[in-house]
Amino acid sequence: MRVLVVEDDESLRSQLSDALSKSGYAVDGTGNGESAEIYGNQFPYDAVILDLGLPGKPGLDVLRAWRKRGNTTPVIVLTARGQWHEKVDGFDAGADDYLSKPFYMKELIARMGALIRRSQGRTQGPLAVEGVELDEETQQVTVNGTVHRLTGVEFRLLRALMLNRGRVLSKERLEEHVYDLDAERGSNVIEVYIKRLRDKVGKEMIQTRRGQGYVFGGQ
């Protein structure tokens, strides 16, 4: 899953990026309102963390511009402006959640997880498909009672596949979910990780569709 962090304070942005990466998200970051708007329009993010006081374009204007274009990506507003009249304005502009600084990273990640789950129509609880259970907190997968550790990329890849079970995911789509903008992308990296995942969750769980991509779930 891929998220956008819009925050003009660099140290806070890198803290956010680190924490989110550790939780298994591909993270893009920017500190400028205008580029944030362009990023948000261009890439299929699963969630956006948006500061309000931004150089270039105010955060609320960026949010309104997205919503006007019909962009429904879940947005958490993260700001020092914590007064209720400001929250009212934030929700009116189309925010899905509002967290005021100072905040706890754990709370932010939990709320973002909840927001993404909600936007995908899921309820709380571990992600489980046909005996394969993915624990998003520990980033471990349990297959028929056996626990396997996952690397960061493996976790993201498996989560993307499990979230879209039964649907064909192209290699490009998977790459978008796994890598952020800065990552180097090899041509057959996805294949390598798919093979590793098959070793852990069972070969029949991930099927290859020639020329189309991969499908999760044995038929």
Binding site: W84, K87, V88, G90, F91, D92, A95, D96, D97, Y98, A114, R118
Partner: peptide, 13 residues
């Protein structure tokens, strides 16, 4: 009314 909307959005879960 607008405030109630915002508060319930903040406590959606």
């Amino acid at each position: 009314t607008a405030l109630a909307r915002a508060v319930s959005a903040a406590h959606r879960e």
